[in-house]
Design a protein around this nucleic acid. Structure first.
Lengths: 114, 114
DNA sequence: TCTAAATATTCCTTGACAGGAATATTCCTC
DNA sequence: GAGGAATATTCCTGTCAAGGAATATTTAGA
């Protein structure tokens, strides 16, 4: 038909595919945080927190603001917008319309099992 | 404030975090395909294609329909819906509103650099 | 300048995982 | 039922990434 589908950076996905990093992202949803606070709230050791934050930072998910001794990390909007666009490109799949007979029959079969 | 945020299964993310698997998913966006077709179009060897499809299947991203000799794989809507909900829970981040002074000042700084 | 706090970095080890090659399994056709 | 096509599975190997521990770096303050 028309133009290309939106894409999402693999580094975004692989960064989010690590449990601790995903938790960091969830945590930062409510606002910027310091490395120490992140480590504390998630029960991580400081070096691991720093390492995970570096990965998140390298992938552009997070940005740093130096505040004297501390580094304040916050989420960046772009990766989430890109991820959103990408997922949206599957709206046809998400609609879950049963357009053809095969799907319809398989759905009937499933209902019979219950 | 109110209820909990939507969550997304880690297996969904880690399954998608592998380049070949993501390509398989992109490919299946246009419709169900056979293992052989998937392998051909993506330049994969059949066993690797099968293995990746197993991972995708285990995570619920994909489902199989046996058709005699062949196995037809197609996308399942649920993981994408879940991923969509999850990303939507970051809408505040995605809006990129500069609600506070800090952000505003940093934005000014960036503009001065150019 | 010395110290302490906050953070980043390095080195090491271990486990997970992806690819290659070979083989097993299933099903159709003759 | 023998052979071949399509797919799954197993075994092996190498790579990469995460955690632990130690150390380096930066900054504020006395």
């Amino acid at each position: 038909m028309s133009g290309k589908n939106p894409d999402v950076d693999m580094t975004t996905l692989s960064a989010l595919a690590e449990p601790n990093r995903k938790e960091i992202v969830e945590l930062l949803r409510s606002g910027p945080l310091t490395v120490g606070e992140i480590a504390n709230r998630l029960g991580l050791r400081q070096p691991q927190a720093s390492k995970h934050l570096k990965v998140l930072s390298d992938s552009g998910i997070v940005e740093v603001q130096a505040e004297a001794n501390r580094r304040i990390y916050k989420l960046r909007p772009e990766p989430f917008q890109a991820l959103d666009s990408w997922v949206q490109s599957f709206r046809r799949v998400m609609q879950e319309r049963f357009d053809n007979l095969d799907d319809y029959l398989r759905e009937l079969q499933n209902k019979e099992k219950s």
